[in-house]
Design a protein around this nucleic acid. Structure first.
Lengths: 217, 217
DNA sequence: TGTTTGAATGTTTTGTTGAATATTTACCCG
DNA sequence: CGGGTAAATATTCAACAAAACATTCAAACA
């Protein structure tokens, strides 16, 4: 959590409250300063600008989410494949809930990834590291025999990107997303040879799905 | 091609020239009409509105692209897996070139998918049908044993969406995209068991790639 | 009667201006 | 000096007027 003891932490706390409640754009530096009993100018002694305050908040939140995902992997007695499924589904649910929960967080995230492309990269790198861990564990248990774990993790991240950036699938409701992720992860885990995505999946009724599988850009 | 003999085809030709050269927004109905030696009002006898002209043009272009992809599948002596690779790579190259080639086409496509969600769905359905053909052929040759071809085609489309909607990967240069598609399609064709994405791929030097695999939203 | 026109209409875009707000700077205090 | 302020400046935003435009329609045409 953001430490309230330091001036810097104090600022972050105050800003976070405002950003989450009123949104990034609707929050002024003057307001944040007032909440901290200081003048607007003084904020610039602690952060280069407004965006950097938001970035610090989001970094903290992102790392917190990664920590949660790490917890998911701690569950004992799961095979590597099961862990991989656990992971991607937990991941999708986390981000989806985050977005649903409030639009303000979403706004912040969008602004930051627009203005600071490197921000998302840092979070993605952490995420990729977890994927690598899963794959490496699968190698260790002889469940997989993956030559280049890091590269494969990158590819997995690529294949499931759609389920982690809800901006990209705005129009798809959660149940359809879940169905797609189920199919994709099955393809990845088993390949096409063993019956494709269709076998042994908990299937949904099919009518009405075809024409709505769209990512509306 | 858009037939220049009919009034309707004439309008489409004129509009296409303007849209491609000046962009959708910067083209006025009056200009299109002037190019066809008619008054603006008369355009509405042939199309409900400006957007419908653009939609007709894009539908034609989309079907043309699908036809090209169909040609790719005609190449003899390829296994089903090879055909699948051929297909997705040709597809990516086609759309990428289209976008690179000029921003105006891109603008049109975006406007249409915003205002006419069903438009993209129709093209996606055609695309999915081709995927189904490939899978069915693979079943016929015993290369695959896919139970539900249509569902699996949907999943494949989902997994490779990123490579077909360049909006989503704006920041990735073509060679990196190709590398990712290579990895993803390998995962899908062979699953994780046989060495993951890393084996037997024409690999690139790895430095500098990690932190740029980002979809900047 | 089937086409075309071009002015009329209402909507969208564009341009402008003043106010809000982010950021900087010069200055104070202990 | 570290820690702060408050006024000065630069940028962004919002409201509103003007212009451009898509669309409509009554009239002309053939």
């Amino acid at each position: 959590m953001l430490c309230k003891d330091t001036v810097r932490g104090n600022i972050l706390e105050a800003a976070k409250k405002r950003f989450v409640h009123y949104g990034y754009a609707k929050t002024t530096m003057a307001e944040i300063a007032a909440d901290c009993n200081m003048s607007p100018g003084n904020l610039y002694r602690y952060f280069p600008g407004k965006l950097d305050i938001a970035e610090a908040i989001c970094t903290e939140a992102g790392e917190h989410a990664i920590a949660k995902l790490r917890d998911v992997l701690k569950r004992p007695g799961r095979s590597a494949k099961e862990r991989l499924r656990d992971f991607v589904f937990a991941d999708m649910r986390l981000t989806y809930e985050q977005i649903e929960y409030d639009k303000q967080v979403f706004e912040m995230a969008r602004v930051i990834s627009m203005e600071r492309p490197q921000f998302a990269n840092r979070i993605l790198a952490l995420h990729r590291a977890l994927l690598s861990e899963i794959l490496a564990a699968g190698n260790a248990s002889s469940e997989f025999s993956i030559e280049d774990v890091v590269f494969t993790a990158e590819m997995l991240q690529s294949a499931t990107m759609k389920f982690r950036y809800p901006q990209l699938h705005s129009k798809l409701p959660y149940d359809k997303l879940e169905r797609e992720l189920e199919g994709v992860i099955h393809l990845v885990l088993n390949g096409l040879d063993d019956g494709g995505a269709g076998r042994e999946l908990p299937r949904m009724p099919k009518e009405g799905l075809k024409s709505e599988t769209l990512v509306t850009i």
